[in-house]
Design a protein around this nucleic acid. Sequence first.
RNA 1: CGGGAUGUGGCCCAGUGGCUAGGGCACCUGGUUUGGGACCAGGGGAUCGGAGGUUCGAAUCCUCUCAUCCCGACCA
Length: 571
Amino acid sequence: MLLSRYFFKTFKEVPGDAELKSHQLLVKGGYIKQVGTGIFSYFPVAYRSLKKIEAIIRQEMDGIDGYEVNLPVAMPASLWSETGRYEAIGSEMVRFDDRAGRKMVLGMTHEEAVTDLARYVINSYKQLPVMLYQIQTKFRDEPRSRGGLIRVREFVMKDAYSFHASLEDLDAYYEKVHAAYHRIYKRCGLDVISVASDVGMMGGTGAHEFMAVTESGEDTLIVCDSCGYQANREVAQAKRTYEKDPPEAMKEVATPGMKSIEDVAEFLGVEPEDTLKAVMYTAGKKLVLCVIRGDLEINEIKLKNYLGVKDLVFAQDDEIINAGMVPGFASPVGLKDVRIIVDESAAESTNLVAGGNKKDVHIKNVNFGRDYTSTEVVDISTVKEGEACPECGKPLTITRGIEVGNIFKLGTKYSKVMKAVFLNENGKAEDLIMGCYGIGVGRLFASVVEVQKETNRIIWPISIAPFEVELIGLALEKDAKVKEAAFETYRKLKDNGFEVLFDDRKFSPGFKFKDADLLGAPLRVTIGDRSLKNGGAEVQIGTEEKIIISLDDLIPELKKAREQLFKELDS
RNA sequence: CGGGAUGUGGCCCAGUGGCUAGGGCACCUGGUUUGGGACCAGGGGAUCGGAGGUUCGAAUCCUCUCAUCCCGACCA
C-alpha cells in the first residue's frame, strides 16, 4: 500500500472532548470519526485491524465447534414479547413501527433470535450440544456512552449461544469457552484477567467477565495477589473475623446533630466499626431496612439479587418517618412491621452504637438477637481494600478494568418461555440448557491501545496490526539511489507476503515519523541517504533499539522478526 | 432522567452590542527544504448549531430548540 494513495489522515490536534488515551490516539491517528453520541465510522486502517480481530475470534469459536450464523438487525416486537423483554427492557432498546404499523425493535442482544433458531431445528438430545455464534452490529441506546470506543451505542459484538442437554454438559462447555476466550485475548496481544461476576437480572448459575486491567476502566475489581482470587466488586466477598465481647446493657446517649457515622464515632470516641449503619431502601414498593457495620458500605447489587428486585432506591425522609424512624438516627431497635436485612458484619459484632430512633439520640451496646432480630442475615457488604481474601486470607487489592468479554451460564431462562425443548433418551421433553458468551470487538480494539504505556504512539500486536511493516522512505525525490532502494524494498516486502505500508509521500522526516508512531506498525523500516551510508535500512521492532540491516539481509531478518512476534502471542 | 458545561472554516481556539469575524494547524499554487510534526510568498474555504425576539445595529442580549461533553442515576 502506498501511503500517498491511501485514504488516511492524521491530526495534530484532537477534539477537546476526547479524554481516554485510546480515544485520543485513535482519533489523532485517523482510525475513527465520531458521527453521533456513541456512534462511530471506522477508517480503513481501523477496519483492517477489526477484521483481524474478528478472524481470530472466528478461528477460536470454530475451534470449539461453533457455527457462525447471521441474525436479524431489526426484529418484530412479538419475538421479544415471548420472553417478556419487549416490556421489561427500558429505553435502551430502540423501538419503531414499520410501514404497516408493526412494532419492531433493533437487536441489542440476540437470545430470542437464536433460541428461535434452536427450537426450529433441535428436536433430540442427539443434536446436542451445539453452539451458534454471530459477529454483528448491535445497537443499544445507552443512557451514557463515553470514552471513545470503550462505551458506545452502536458496536460490533461476537455473541455466542450454546445449547445443552444437561447442566453438567453446560459446565464442561463453559470451561472450553473460558479457555478459548483466554486464547483470543492472548492472540490479540491483550492481557486480561477473568473475574467472577454478577449474574444480575439474567438469572443463571454462574458468570465471568474478562477484564483488561487499567486505571481508566469502568469496573472495580477485587483481586488477591496471593492465591489468584479475582472478582468484580459487585460479587466479591471478604473473610471477616469478629471479636465478641459479652453483651452490655443498652444505654441512650445524647448526640446532638451527629447524623453521619464519622460524626457519631468521633463524638463518642469510638471507631466506625463499633457502630451500626441502618439504611432504608424502597425495593419495588416496599420498605426495607438494611443493617450493616458502620465502616462498611452496602453493596446494592448483592442486595438487589437477594431481594430479587430490579428497582432499588434510597427511601425518602417521609417514608422513613412513616416507618417509625428518624432520618439520621435510624435504627432497627424497637422497630415493628419493617423488613430488616442484616449483613453478617452487623450480626456478628457486639456492643455497637446504633441510632436511637429519636432526634439527637444514639444507643450504645446494641446487639443482634437481643435488641433487634431478623431471620435474614446475609452478605450485602462491599469489600474494602486490604480486607482478607475469602480463599486464602491474605489482603485483597482493588484495581479497575475494562470489561472486554463475558461468559454466562444462562440455564433455561429463555428456552423455557420460548418452548425450546428437546426429547431426552426417554423420549421426554426437556428445556434446552443454554450458555451465552460475548466479546465487544471494538472495545477489545480500543482496549489494546488503552492499556499500552506509551502515550504518544501506538504499537499494535502484529496479529491485529493494520500493517505488519511500515516502510518510510526519506527525501525520495532528492536522491535517485534512495528512491530506487526504497521502492525495491517495498516490492520485495510485498513479494514476500508482508502487509506493508510504504510512506512515499513528499513530507519532512519528522512528519512521517509522527504518522508512523500513530499507525503503529510493529515493524518499522526507514530508508534514507543516511541509512544507506550506514549500510542499509534502519529497522525498529516495537520499541526496541533501532538497528541497521543491509538491504540483502532485510527480508530474512524481517521474516524472523515477524515470526518471533507471532510466536510471543501464541498460547 | 437529574446536575454542570460547551457549540465560531475540516481540527484547536480568540473575539461578550459597533467598520469587511481573527489566528494557529490542515488544504491549494509557486519556490526553497528533507533523520522527529520545515520555511517564504500567494490563495480558497464560515449564512458564528438552528428558530424566533430585542435593537439603528447581534457571534455577542433574551426565549425556545437541537447537538456534543463531563458527573450522577441506569445498563442486556
